[in-house]
Amino acid sequence: MSEIEKSELLDRFAYLSERESGDHLAVNCPAEQLIEFCTILRDEFQFDLLLDVTAIDWDVATPRFTGVYHFYSTVKQMYIRVASDCKDNIKPTLPSLVSLYSAADWHERETYDLMGIIYEGHPNLKRILMWDSYPYHPLRKDFPLAGIETPLPAEDVVEQTNLKVSAAPMMGGPFVSSGDGKMSQTEPKAKDESWNEEKGK
């Protein structure tokens, strides 16, 4: 089994930089070189399995969005994590890997759906988990867990039931908390104003 050394990669590809990682080999790759690097990863280093495509929203930091890819080599039995920052904070884009791995198709659609990253060159970039006309990207940090009031697309059902997406009640739900700071200010029920159904009347 031949392990790739981190230095081997970093020496060969000047555009790569080392990424802090708790486990596997991890590199940062600029978005422009992503396709080039992944092609070499697949063909030369035998990373034949694209396991996961996702993104992280760093909220107020710049660059705000980082795309993260996990590859696995069934030959060398090792993982590699490739991260790529999106230049634009408002309209984040990354190149699509669909031409290299078919698995990227659904993964990228999911990341677009939940995080709002636009994958350039994707043949069918539309929502996959939420419905097509849903206006938000729920996994962004500025989106509340409870959701935002939104109309539903099915007109006939809406007419009969008056149904729409309404913010989920957080009071009385599972006791959850997030982030740092005082508990009373960080748990969702404190942040969420629509916690009480009666309040809306």
Partner: peptide, 12 residues
């Protein structure tokens, strides 16, 4: 209790 889940099927 999340953005995607209907809070009770009795609403439809």
């Amino acid at each position: 209790r999340s953005y995607a889940t209907l809070q009770g099927v009795d609403r439809v």
